[in-house]
């Protein structure tokens, strides 16, 4: 009897679970961004990048174009920078020069990157409105932005 009650309780606990909802990041504009609020608007594309990573820098302008095209439909892009204290002071300057409009957060300690089990850069994740990771992408080759757009369109059509 006790075992049955314990299992039922466990089942109840399982039904109450969440995963990404409590992750918060600090943007370079000193705003606290809650991932739940970002993906809750429609979907969220998280892109991990760094200044020393050439493919990352090549990818950013394409992500900015996607952001401009779909932000009105609830799609947000969040760039999470992985530069360590070695060069993190330059991130804001670089972003300003590239005219990147989507929010950028700093993760100098790789805390957020490790939460998503990132291994190499660039690393991107697409999260749907419910907080599920529906798409992962490692690296950037010219043309990869088309794959992101295709996944975004799929989500919007659901």
């Amino acid at each position: 009897m006790k075992k049955t009650i314990l299992m039922l309780l466990f089942s109840f606990l399982i039904l109450e679970a969440q995963s990404l909802s409590e992750i918060k990041v600090q943007s370079i504009k000193n705003e606290t961004l809650h991932l739940k609020e970002l993906y809750g608007q429609g979907a969220l594309l998280i892109n991990f990048w760094a200044l020393w990573c050439q493919p990352c820098k090549s990818e950013l302008p394409h992500l900015n174009k996607l952001y401009e095209k779909y932000k009105g439909r609830g799609i947000t892009i969040l760039g999470i920078n992985q530069d360590t204290p070695k060069s993190v002071s330059k991130v804001k300057s670089f972003i300003a020069s590239q005219r990147i409009d989507f929010p950028i957060a700093l993760d100098s300690n790789f805390e957020i990157f490790n939460k998503f089990n990132g291994q190499v850069l660039p690393y991107s994740l697409l999260i749907d409105r419910s907080g599920n990771i529906v798409y992962r992408h490692t690296g950037y080759i010219p043309g990869d932005e088309n794959a992101f757009e295709k996944e975004i369109i799929n989500l919007l059509n659901e």
Binding site: S89, K92, F94, I95, A96, S97, R99
Partner: peptide
Amino acid sequence: SYNEEGLG
């Protein structure tokens, strides 16, 4: 640092 659109 100083930043404006197009310059950092």
